[in-house]
Design a protein around this nucleic acid. Structure first.
Lengths: 275, 275
DNA sequence: CAGAACAGTGTCCATTGGATACAGTTTTCT
DNA sequence: AGAAAACTGTATCCAATGGACACTGTTCTG
C-alpha cells in the first residue's frame, strides 16, 4: 500500500495531482534502500539509453521494450526504477536539458540573453524530440528550472518587474522553440542534407505552384526571400527583434524612473510604442 | 496496385516523401467516383468527430476505434476515407485552424498583426491539442497556409524583405504558441478553474519552497510578480515587445531608404540596435 | 540462521494502428 | 437485360504498445 515508493512523502495536498510521481523522481532523493540485492540498473543508465534512442529515431523510437532490450534487460525490470513511461520521459527531458549555461553575474543583459537563447537552441538541435516531449502539462525538473533561473538572473537588473521578467523568458523560449520546430521539420524528408531553408522554400513552392493567385503575399515573399537565406537567420532575426523591443522598454522604464539618466540604460529613449 | 486512390497524381518526384497522402487529402480534389454505393460517411464528418473528441480529451483520446464508434461505424471503415491516422490528424489540424481572419488591405501592419496574433491565440485556446498535433514535419494545409498568407499580407508594405517577412511570421507564431503552451499546461490539474497564472505561481512556489537559495532570481521574480497577473498578460507583453522591435527595424529601413521621410513610417528613427 | 525486503522475469491483458480478405451494392459496358 | 467492374463497409488477424500481477531468486538485518 504505502510501500510503492513512488508516492510523495507528504499527505498529498500538492498541486501536482497525477504527476506526483514525476515530481518525486525529478526532485526527490533517490537513496537506495540497503536491503535486498543491489540494483543492476540505474535511473541514469536507463535515462541515457532512452535519450540515445530518442536522439536517433525520435520519441516514437522510445518504448519500454526497446530501452530494456538495449540494456539487455526485460521490459518489466524498468518498472522497478520508473513508475511509468510518462515519468521516464520527464526524466529524459530534464536530463537532456542539461546544466544551464553559466552567465557572469555582472554581464549585460542583452548579450547574456543572446547566448542563453543560442545555448537553448543548441539543446533543441541536439535533442529534437524535446519539442514533442515537452508539450502539455508536466512538472518542471531542476535543470529546466535552472535554465529559467539563468535567464532571470540576466534580467535581474533591468528594472523589469517580476512578471515582466517571467514573460520575457517565456517570449524568448517560445521563439527558440518555434525556430527549432521548423528546423526539425526540415531535417527529414527526401531532401535531407541540403540547406534547410531551401527545403522549406521547395516545399512551399511545390504547394504554391498554380495557386499564386490564392496566396499572393506568400508567393512574393518566398520568391523574394529565396535568394539569401542562412541557417540560423530566422533565429537571429527574431531574437534581435525581441531584444530590440526589450531594450526599448527597459530604456523607457529607466527614463521614467530618473529622467536625467535616461540615455544611460538604453541607446534610445524614444517612445517607440505609441499603441 | 495503382488504384489505392491515395498516391499523388504525378510521377512522385515530390519533396513530400512519405507525406504525399496528406498532401493529396489536404489539397487534392475529392471528387467522388460514380461507381459503387454512395459513401455513408464523409471526410468532413470524420474530421469533425475526431476534432470534437480531441477538444474534450486531448489528442490521446482520438483513436480510430473511438472515432468510428462515435459514428456507429467500424474502425476499418474509416480507412476507406483516410489512408492512416497521420493523414487524419493533418486534416484535423487544417480544419481546426479554420479560415484566417480577414484583414483590410489598407490596414496598418501593427494592429493587423496584433489582431492576427489574437485570433491565432483564440484558435489554440479552442483546440489545445493543436499544440501537440502540429509538431514535427508535416504538410501545411490550405488553411494553415492561409493564415501565413494573411500575416504576410499585413507585412507586405513594411519595407521588409521577403525572408524577413517570413521570419516575422515565424516569430509571432512562436510566441503565440509558447503562450498557448503554458496556458494549456495550467488548464489541467487539481486547481482547474482558478486563474491560470496563480496556478503557475502555486506550482512554482511548491517547487521553490526550501530551495530559494538554488533559484534566487526565480524566487524573487515569482514573489514580485505574484501580485498583479492577468490572463493574457504574458501574450500581450511579448507581443508588444515583438511589435516594438519590428517597428524599430521598419523605421530604420525607412530612414535608410529616404532620410527625409524617416519620421513617417515609424515614430522614431533611432539606432536602437547597436549589435 | 530465519524472515523480511528487495531485484528481475514470465505471463497475461486491453488497446493501439494497420493489412487483408470478403460480402453486399451500384454503375457502366456489351 | 445481363454481366463484369468498381466501390463500400465489415470481420478477422497481426505486431507492438504500456502496464498489472504473481513468481523466483538474492541479500541484508534482527
Amino acid at each position: 500500500m504505502a510501500g510503492d515508493g513512488w508516492s510523495a512523502g507528504d499527505g498529498g495536498s500538492s498541486v501536482f495531482g497525477d504527476q506526483a510521481g514525476s515530481a518525486a523522481l525529478l526532485w526527490g532523493e533517490r537513496g537506495r534502500p540497503s536491503r535486498g540485492p543491489k540494483p543492476a540498473l540505474s535511473l541514469e543508465r536507463i535515462t541515457r539509453t532512452a535519450i540515445a534512442l530518442a536522439d536517433l529515431g525520435g520519441l516514437g523510437a522510445v518504448s519500454m521494450q526497446r530501452v530494456a532490450g538495449e540494456l539487455d534487460f526485460t521490459k518489466m525490470s524498468l518498472y522497478r526504477y520508473v513508475p511509468g513511461k510518462t515519468e521516464l520521459v520527464a526524466l529524459m527531458i530534464d536530463t537532456a536539458m542539461g546544466e544551464p549555461p553559466a552567465v557572469a553575474p555582472d554581464a549585460a543583459w542583452r548579450p547574456a540573453l543572446r547566448t542563453w537563447a543560442g545555448e537553448l537552441s543548441a539543446v533543441f538541435r541536439r535533442h529534437p524530440w524535446l519539442l514533442e516531449a515537452a508539450v502539455g502539462p508536466r512538472v518542471m525538473g531542476p535543470h529546466e528550472l535552472g535554465w529559467t533561473e539563468c535567464a532571470l538572473a540576466a534580467l535581474a537588473r533591468t528594472g523589469l518587474s517580476g512578471s515582466e521578467q517571467l514573460d520575457t523568458v517565456v517570449l524568448v523560449t517560445g521563439h527558440v522553440r518555434g525556430i527549432a520546430q521548423i528546423t526539425a521539420s526540415m531535417g527529414v524528408g527526401s531532401a535531407r542534407g541540403t540547406h534547410p531553408e531551401q527545403v522549406l522554400s521547395a516545399a512551399l513552392n511545390e504547394l504554391l505552384v498554380g495557386r499564386s493567385d490564392r496566396f499572393p503575399a506568400l508567393t512574393s515573399a518566398v520568391a523574394a526571400g529565396a535568394a539569401e537565406c542562412g541557417r540560423d537567420q530566422a533565429l537571429e532575426f527574431g531574437l534581435e527583434r525581441i531584444l530590440d523591443g526589450l531594450e526599448s522598454l527597459i530604456a523607457r522604464r529607466a527614463a521614467d524612473a530618473s529622467p536625467d539618466t535616461a540615455r544611460k540604460a538604453g541607446t534610445d529613449g524614444g517612445d517607440a510604442t505609441t499603441t
